[in-house]
Design a protein around this nucleic acid. Structure first.
Lengths: 334, 334
DNA sequence: GTGAAAGCGCTAACAT
DNA sequence: ATGTTAGCGCTTTCAC
């Protein structure tokens, strides 16, 4: 049997509450008793039982993160950052993978409700009503990450890429660089933040610059190498007049697009410029991708959980700061 | 206040233990009461309090995984698999990142001791004595993953790559393919499983085939692109007679090596064959890497935690099955 | 400043 | 088959 607070109290010849006070640094304990307690704790290698504590305090010191796919490098990076932030606040991070199945997500959220987690970060892809209903059941702070709810008001604090402005900036940049025929390959419109808004940013930038966009220049595919390959292929096959640049909704899409272009002997960036999103593959891929990098994601996200009570009230949509990075997959159009 | 088991008991007009029996499917309850209870549970959206349950049962239904770096794609993949396995056994996975700092690992393990986790998977890099001492404090099953203890007996069940045999097989394969001058770039010998054993496998295969290995053909670097680049550079600079093939301790090393070779206008695999390890970059890197793929890692690992009590006793060192994959970074030597 | 008493929400004996 | 009783290990009043 593990050693309990009562064992420490007996060993240190003090009462149980005194031990509790010492351990939690709360209340007032004389220096003498404090030392006796600390000595006993170390001697007996006492570890307070988290369950017993949680039962009373209603806290668990656990921050839960529910994400679609832990093997996604972008996700993994953010988890790393969240973990660092939790550590700073003396919390432990619990991660749950929901395999992009909202049904599984709801199952997991129910498990988390039983555990009375102190905070929840939900990294969603598609936020439907049953899922949102489940999120409402939490009494702890809930943060939506990576994906927000399209409709008007902000029911949960939401932290995402500033997809709209970033896509505009990218498109503007390419236009500045002399490109006129610019295509777009992104994720689909069901993905509001990462699909719809990026497309919108691109379209608005084009329009404001008085540039025509034929429908055949726009592809909405999966966020994957295959998606990028397929999208580029369609654009290639359906446009006798090729674009000189392509805005991609993710680095994976950019990789797929470049793969396809290579397969038809087009060179990047000599023949076609390709712009990515996420800064996810910079070290391994053969061409350093021009891309959009979001900064301090995990930190910005996670700190929302630790805001003071009064600030928790006002929910808002927060964007990561971002940088548009020019690298070698794009160049000035002659 | 959340609804408790007492509320359900009152609502269903049964005793508290009866509710407990229904929820846990244990003991015997008449069909009539069971239905009444279930109805109340649903009506009031009751969720049992995990802390209260854990306090009595001494279980937490949590499996903890402590890993050096969650952003490592190999790690992330294994976590994904472990999570799937936990799900199957109705457990929740708690992941902790220790940034390759054993000190931080010990801090985290102390936190986990307080939580009475049901199982622990420690994905170590360098297992020193203080760390092992901390692991001994756990009363739940503890699995060492990715890294074992070099010394004789198996104190903890250990599950790793079969680095020795895989490296031998890779080297044998290259020799079969006509290579005679084969170099090696791996991690350092502090990493027993992934550094020392791979080097040993390579060396033994060379020796058994009567092939000389000049010291300048062996580099022990970091498991990273930079490490591979640096190692290849050193081999290139220090050997007027270049190897025709290089065995690498990881795919990242292989990527770095290939990057260097490109920079001096050597082509892979035309001029030099490069063999990787891990199958970690197959989709993004420009050359499909010949590599070693370990199979069903997370599953094999995690299932060890759920072995029957009597089998937990005999600790053993288990290896993942592996495949040696020939892809495009190697070819027959003329 | 310290201890006695109560109780968090649940399960595990033990009665009946 | 069901209810009564006790208690897991801790924190929180509340006396003193």
């Amino acid at each position: 049997m593990a050693v309990t607070i009562a064992d420490i109290a007996a060993d240190a010849k003090v009462s149980v509450p005194t031990v509790s006070r010492v351990i939690n640094g709360a209340g007032t304990v004389s220096e003498e008793l404090r030392e006796r307690v600390i000595r006993s704790v170390e001697k007996m290698n006492y570890k307070p039982n988290a369950a017993a504590r949680s039962l009373i305090t209603k806290r668990s010191d656990v921050i839960a993160v529910v994400e679609a796919d832990i093997t996604n490098p972008v996700t993994a990076r953010i988890l790393w950052e969240i973990d660092a932030c939790c550590m700073k606040h003396n919390k432990i991070m619990l991660t749950c993978n929901y395999d992009s199945s909202n049904e599984k997500a709801i199952f997991l959220l129910d498990k988390l409700l039983e555990r009375h987690v102190d905070g929840l970060i939900f990294m969603g892809v598609h936020l439907d009503e049953p899922l949102l209903a489940k999120l409402r059941e939490f009494s702890c702070p809930v943060i939506l990450a990576q994906q927000g709810v399209e409709s008007g008001e902000c029911e949960f604090t939401t932290v995402t890429d500033d997809s709209y402005h970033a896509a505009r900036d990218v498109t503007d940049f390419l236009i500045q660089e002399g490109h006129r025929r610019i295509a777009y390959i992104g994720g689909d419109a069901n993905d509001y933040t990462n699909g719809k808004l990026r497309l919108q940013g691109y379209l608005n930038a084009m329009e404001e610059n008085g540039l025509e966009v034929p429908a055949s220049y726009i592809r909405q595919e999966q966020f994957s190498i295959e998606g990028g390959h397929q999208g580029m292929k369609e654009i290639y096959e359906n446009n006798l007049k090729l674009p000189s640049a392509v805005v991609c909704g993710s680095d994976m899409i950019a990789v797929g697009a470049i793969r396809f272009l290579k397969s038809v002997d087009l060179s990047v960036p000599k023949d076609i410029s390709v712009f990515g999103f996420d800064d996810a593959v910079s070290d391994i891929f053969e061409i350093p991708l021009s891309t959009v990098r979001s900064c301090k994601r995990g930190e910005i996200l996670c700190e929302q959980l630790f805001k003071k009570q009064e600030e928790q009230g006002k929910k808002e949509w927060i964007y990561y700061p971002y940088q548009v990075l020019r690298r070698n997959s794009t160049r000035r159009h002659q």
